[in-house]
Amino acid sequence: MAVAETTRRQRLSEFWSDFAQSRVAVVALAVILVLLFLAFACEWVAPQDPYDLRNLDWLDAFLPPGTVGSGGYVHVLGTDNVGRDMLSAVLYGLRTSFIIGLSAGALALTAGIAVGLTAAYFGGRLEAVLMRVVDLQLSMPAILMALVLVALLGSGVGQIVLALVVAQYAYFARTTHGAATVERRKDYIEAARSTPLPTYRVLFRHLLPNVMPPLIVVATVQVAAAIALEATLSFLGVGLPLTEPSLGSLISNGFRYIHTDRTWLSLYPGFALMITVVAINLVGDQVRTVLDPRQGL
């Protein structure tokens, strides 16, 4: 057992040292961790609970960044049209964005794996039907798909997540299918089948772990895409209402005042969104570089 422990730890430390070859990726990872911490600790970190209307004071509306408001603390990022502290709103919005992005990513990953593995392993008509549906979806922009679904389902966190999953599972299904089609022809799958081991064991214990590396890469990129997609939906006004702020609805709200000089209303949630998405993508790129077999893992 001790041998196994060291090998796993060795592999992890090897992975980390490969990953750390890129300073940018390490910084991006640190940024993500800080943002995650701030977002999920927002109830303690943020100066104000922007959900609670009792905390809002009309007199505080449109305070520029750095002003002290009626609450007696500095509004680092200013306030919005109803006197909401923008820093708090951005942190709470970031939490909403992360929750939606991560849960949509996880569910889409699960759904995509189910579809892709089934298609690749069982083949035949089932594969043809499943993968044609996936191709059909991939040929349409995800935002179009998500818009139609949100229009049908209505708005709310659950509905948005469902819409994102339906729009995004296809990427996971395509990647899983590609990797699994290659892996399932390998002798170790045949060996497992001819032992014989039951199908679920062959699928989940033998096939799935070997198709995971490319999926991890797609998953990071798709979490970023889900966050951006949710922001787009909210910006277009079909996502989350401002009472439940996500980054997109904050940007959208501020956008109404963009022609005045109150640019901070849109600018700071926009920065938060951009930094989050870029950081996740940078990490995803480096994970891809490390996991790429041509780089030798």
Binding site: A4, K186, D187, Y188, E190, A191, A192, S194, T195, R205, H206, P209, N210
Partner: peptide
Amino acid sequence: VQMIHQDPFASLNPRIK
């Protein structure tokens, strides 16, 4: 009936001890 494959680099699952 148990089988032994030609290529021992392909017939063992690389992720299982």
